[in-house]
Design a protein around this nucleic acid. Structure first.
Lengths: 185, 185
DNA sequence: TCCTAAGTGGAGAGATTTGCTCCGTTTACA
DNA sequence: TGTAAACGGAGCAAATCTCTCCACTTAGGA
């Protein structure tokens, strides 16, 4: 793959991620192309179908989640408590809630493409480890399941209406704080 | 106003509320008319502009919020703690988060119609009373503001993707429980 | 029961949006 | 420097949406 093609591909994924977060998964291809600064044909060449594009977004996102875990792996041993809240904060900052719901919107497990199911399983696996460690350190109630924790994080990081963002800019942080507090034993 | 016209008006508001919750505020008028079981012309006669319709939804919704408070006013004196969680549960069941964000989506305080601002103020007033009482009874931390509490409730009651609803049907209840726990002193 | 003003439905014209392809031009890199 | 790879965007067909017009129906008072 030529270097310029690779760069455009990444620009498309970034733009698509933003737009999907803002306007949902059915955001028109021409808007995505415009935001990415590429022609519409280039978008279609890289991602012939909408599913291809959504998978690209999801896979890119999982990479960033993994990076969060790695970044705090070292601190965990010395200070689990602050590593835990740092991880939760960083995960929240990725705005899972803006991206994931859009990716599965209106579909059941059955009609998700197999590749999407693999991504899903991988994501759950990543979170499972870190949650188990938090529970082992007494930072989270034992009866919290990975699924609940993860979806909860997603719900809290859904984009807020602009009206709210301007009036209560700390809303997302506040929610995460209340959430972690509510999860404590 | 003729009785049948009144009935249709209410059917329209109900249908519009559902659809706005499901698909956002720009849901096409013809879909709303179809779900309400009325002709498109009837919809336009009752609500000439989209803003008229959204205001109708908002005002209807405030009425239901008020009903929740009234329903628990009696219990409050005898058992504040369970009245409080019952109110929070019932408010959550109204799915504020499905309706309100759509009503203000993409608008700043300035370009909301005056009537919408009045509704907003009224809603905040309703919640302020009940939150103050909860705080007076030591059920909620003193440093929680009405706005944070209310928006938080909204965020937690946003509709979940169907995939989540079928896999984790108790998700909304679980979130409210964690939320209330996180708000305790 | 009858009359009329109020209310209704839905076809459809016109405007807008969107998906997707085709092809002449540009560019990376061997 | 030559060529295969990559690009952009005009533009057509199809789908969607808004909003009006007008002939028909009905509630409810006399």
């Amino acid at each position: 793959m030529r270097a310029d093609a690779q760069a455009k591909r990444e620009a498309i994924i970034a733009a698509a991620q933003e737009l999907v977060a803002e306007r949902g998964a059915e955001v028109p291809f021409n808007q995505i192309a415009a935001r990415a600064g590429v022609g519409i044909a280039t978008l279609y060449r890289h991602f012939p179908t909408r599913d291809d594009l959504l998978l690209g977004i999801g896979s890119d996102f999982l990479g960033r989640m993994a990076a969060v875990f790695d970044a705090h792996a070292a601190t965990w041993d010395t200070d689990p408590s602050s590593a835990w809240s740092a991880i939760a904060r960083d995960l929240a900052a990725l705005r899972m809630g803006a991206v994931f719901p859009a990716l599965v919107q209106g579909r059941s497990l059955d009609d998700l493409p197999p590749a999407a199911l693999r991504l899903r399983a991988e994501g759950i696996g990543q979170v499972r480890d870190i949650l188990a460690r938090a529970q082992a350190n007494g930072l989270v109630r034992e009866d919290i399941s990975v699924e609940h924790f993860q979806i909860g994080l997603g719900v809290l990081t859904r984009p807020l209406p602009e009206l709210v963002q301007s009036e209560l800019p700390d809303m997302h942080d506040w929610l995460i704080e209340v959430y972690l507090r509510g999860l404590r034993p």
